[in-house]
Amino acid sequence: MRHIISLLMENEAGALSRVAGLFSARGYNIESLTVAPTEDPTMSRMTIVTSGSDDVIEQINKQLNKLVDVVTVMDLTDGDHIERELMLVKVRATGNDREELKRMTDIFRGRVIDVSDKTYTIELTGTEHKLDRFLQAIDHTLILETVRTGASGIGRGDRILKL
């Protein structure tokens, strides 16, 4: 099953490679991984999307907790949470396609953030699923490049990941 795990870790050189190394050494899947410093600059927050059986997910959580640089771990999938991912898509936008692409972007509540005479760059935020649907909805032969951040996640309401 797909799980989204959030963690706080020391904002130190090497911390990221400890997490990435753990996943490769133990053969766990990483679907996506995002990381950036938090409001407390000594700490980074990471979101990992992974998948595996319940036993594997339990081990992933325990092994992450064992890493000395990892301060605290929360499996967001265990409760109510929100996920968002950012995608930038550059598309060939000429002739009639310009209008159609703009329309689709509006329907998906995206924005065109860069325009040239032949291209649009579209910014879209949402769940992984929504971004996938957008890519399916437009004519895929027009896609020049896509870049996605991978999911970031946060608990709903009182579910807070703090030290």
Binding site: A13, S17, V68
Partner: peptide
């Protein structure tokens, strides 16, 4: 050294 030993130490430091 930190990279080579990472998978076989409890922790390491540079």
């Amino acid at each position: 050294a930190v990279g080579i030993t990472r998978p076989c130490v409890k922790h390491n430091f540079l």
